[in-house]
Every structure is written in C-alpha cells, then in structure tokens.
Design a protein around this nucleic acid. Structure first.
Lengths: 187, 187
DNA sequence: TTATATGTAGACAGACCTGTCTACTTACAG
DNA sequence: CTGTAAGTAGACAGGTCTGTCTACATATAA
C-alpha cells in the first residue's frame, strides 16, 4: 500500500515509510541507543523537520518501530509455521529459517526490553503483548486440542531461550538441535 | 578479601572495588549505555583520575563488570541448587529465589548482548562462556548420569526463556509454573 | 629522605545527541 | 488564484558523554 504523495508517481516510498524502514533496520542491527536520529535522517534521505513532523520525538519512532516489527514478525511466523506443515515439528525449520538469516540479531523485543526496559514501562507492555501473541499463534496453529494452554507456554519458553542462544552461538545447529530434542520430549 | 590500602584501616572498600560494585549495580539496573561514567564516579566517591587509573576505558569497566557478575552469579546458582536439594526439581525454587528479588532485571549477559553485542564481539564471547558454564553446573549438579548432555542443553534453553519472560511479566508465578511443567515433561 | 602508589578537586576538549527554528519550494485541492 | 500539506537546506541550543590533563596530598617502603 503506497501513500498518495510522491510515491505514487515514482514508486518511491513516502518520507514516513523511509524513516520507519530505516529505523527498523538500524535499531535492529545496532541498537536503539546506538542509533542517533541524524543517522536515520541521513539514510532515509529526509530532513529533520520532516522527521519531527512524522514522529514528534525519538520515543514515538521507537514505538512505531516496535509496532511495525510486531505486525511483520507475527505475520512471518504464522505464515512460516503454516508453510512448514502447521504442526509442532514445524517449529525447528521455522526457527532455522530465521536464525540463518544474515541479519539475524535476536528478538527486537527482548533487545529493546534489555536496552530500555528500566526507563520505558511501555516497552515492557509491548514486549508482553508480543510474546502473548506469539504463544497464541503457537496455540492456534500447532496445538489442535485447544486445551493445551500449558504446553503453548512451555513452547514459548523454549522459543525465547532458542532466540537468545542463537544470538550468542556461532552456529545455529546446536540450538536447533536442542529445540528438536525439547519438542520430542513434549510430544 | 580486602585490599591492602585504606580499606584495611577503616573497612572501607578500595576505590577500585567501589567503582566495580557501583558499576555493577547501575549497569544492571539501568543499562550500560544509560549509565555515564560520571554517575559511577559520583556514587563511588572517587575522582576521574582514579577511575581511569583503575579502568583505562569504560569498556574495561564493562568487561570487569561482566566478569564479576559471571563469578558471583555462578557461585550463587550453584549454591542455591545445592541448597534446594541438588536435583532437577531444585530448578523452580532456585529461579523463584532470583525472580522474586526486588532488583531482578533479567540476565546481565543477555542484556549486555542485546545492548552492545553488535559492536563488541567480546561480549558475545563472554555471554557464550557464561551460558556454557551455567549448563555445566546443571549437568554437574542436577543430572547424575553424566551422559545427559542433550538434556542439560534443553534445560539451558528453558532457563534462558524463563529469565526473559520473568523480565517482562508482572508476576513470576506463571513463568515458574511453565518451568515446572517443562521439568515434569523432561523427567 | 626519596620514590612510588594511590588518592584528591576540578577544568577542559571534542564528539555526539535530541529537539527547535528560519526561510524557502513544490504539489494539490477548491 | 489561495491555502494547506509536505517537503527542502541547514543553523542553532543545550545537554550528555568519554577521555585528557594540571596541581596537589597522603601513605608506605627502602
């Protein structure tokens, strides 16, 4: 969906979209505090007035980043689980698909929580919502008897643990093997 | 063990120790980037020259912080597991002991990795070592047939997942219940 | 006594950061 | 045409940050 300004003429994303996409890339890759707004502005090719017109403060951009990330990650997660068979054994190939990406840097929500959780209680809330929604996807797609609330919660633990481990281990194979072992124990 | 300077006369920790303890507290509570060296210096009651005499850069202090944390956390973890019976069911009360602390703010290593992992590869290495040592403790203390390498790795996943969840959930009970459920599935 | 280690107070430099502002241009709707 | 929205270039303010430096004091060992 393109906005109605310049982008409809030349297929150039709107200034707001460029800001959001650039922030998403840089915040995820380098960290939120490590990324100054001037860098985002430069790479998005807008001016500071435009930046502040769309996002009244850096905090507004951070929230927009996390909401964008939430929506897009959950869509990918859901689609990927379905693509890989839509049952519990899909979990490993889905995580493999993610962990093996060149730009994998863990979970944006865990990272933001670690970085900013003490001073931004809304980030704690955003993270909680994200994780609950992830567990809901697991429940809906992978666990057909819907009474398995507890199992979905355990799977959520395993997913979060795997994400963290994948962030510090050199090779995702050992992590994926542990997920596989865990899934086998749960079946 | 006290150093041989002023502290042996008046039971005042040395300047270095005050810096390290203050940094430990503030880095863990507020985040590493969020904590400027001037705040550490003020609260440790030293001067800037003293700070730089002991730690040639902020990065040196960060490494010292993580090494201090590694040693003290692992000692606590090991002792607590033993205190709670030294078998797999000890895991939940040990994590409860930690998560219920007023100043609980997740895992210092995960937090540092999230915050600084992109620009400090040594932090990735430090985190990896920490987590491997944690899994070794689990293997040594909780799993008597020492062939259970895979199980220890799975437990490590569950522990990391629980730590993350405990950081964003309001109440640790649900998290601890999930750990309990997982442990039961593993036995 | 001298030399060394460790500590003090505090000023300073330069970089980076977030946010405010001026003056102007272009596109579009009515 | 006018008014509005959205964009431009870029300067500026004030704050925070890390690290460098001067000048001095105290404790200890030889």
């Amino acid at each position: 969906m393109k906005s109605l300004n310049a982008s409809s003429k030349k297929d150039v994303p709107s200034a707001r979209e460029r800001l959001l996409l650039t922030a998403h890339r840089l915040f995820y890759q380098d960290g939120i505090r490590a990324t100054g707004i001037d860098k985002i502005i430069l790479e998005a090719q807008v001016t500071k007035v435009t930046f502040y017109r769309h996002f009244p403060s850096k905090n507004d951009l951070i929230r927009a980043y996390l909401e964008y990330r939430h929506e897009h990650w959950l869509t990918w997660f859901s689609d990927s689980l379905t693509r890989h068979g839509g049952n519990l054994t899909a979990l490993v190939p889905v995580l493999a698909e993610w962990f093996e990406q060149e730009d994998f840097r863990g979970c944006a929500f865990i990272n933001s929580l670690s970085e900013l959780g003490s001073e931004h209680p809304d980030i704690v809330e955003i993270t909680r919502r994200h994780k609950h929604d992830m567990i809901d996807v697991v429940k809906r797609l992978l666990l057909k008897p819907s009474k398995q609330e507890q199992l979905a919660e355990v799977i959520g633990l395993i997913v979060d643990g795997a994400i963290v481990r994948a962030q510090y281990e050199r090779d995702p194979c050992n992590t994926l093997q542990s997920v596989q072992n865990a899934v086998e124990k749960l079946l």
